[in-house]
């Protein structure tokens, strides 16, 4: 049971993110929602590679006979974090432009395209 805690955390993070996306009307909060989902996905990946009592996967320096955690999910997570930084920066800068042009970041008022 206790081993499943990370997966529960993943579910909570993604659930909160989806909740934020659907129910919040603030553009910055929507960006936060996306970041939450992203953290959930990253946590999920990193948990997949975890092995109980294992050491860091540095092949030349691992002690004899110890198991190592899986290195691939860590590489995946690192890539995904870097991409996430780019995504967050872009989405926040677009939110900034919207605030400049519309004077608000409430999604109910930012809807000139619908007209």
């Amino acid at each position: 049971m206790i081993g499943n805690f990370p997966y529960i955390a993943v579910a909570i993070l993604i659930g909160l993110g989806v909740y934020t996306l659907i129910f919040k009307k603030n553009l910055i909060k929507i960006a936060i929602g996306i970041t939450l989902i992203e953290s959930g996905a990253n946590l999920f990946l990193i948990t997949l590679g975890y092995r109980k009592g294992a050491v860091a996967p540095i092949y030349t320096q691992a002690p004899e006979g110890m198991t190592m955690v899986l290195p691939t999910p860590q590489a995946l997570t690192l890539t995904s974090i870097v991409i996430g930084v780019a995504t967050t920066a872009l989405i926040l800068s677009i939110a900034m432009i919207i605030y400049k042009k519309y004077g608000t970041i409430n999604t109910d008022e930012v809807r000139r395209l619908k007209e």
């Binding site: 996306l21 042009k101 000139r112």
Partner: peptide
């Protein structure tokens, strides 16, 4: 020039990040 492109961009960004 106007805010509409940014609005469309924001929408697409949310869709594609998810």
């Amino acid at each position: 020039l106007s805010g509409e492109p940014a609005e469309a961009g924001y929408k697409y960004m949310v869709v594609s990040s998810i």
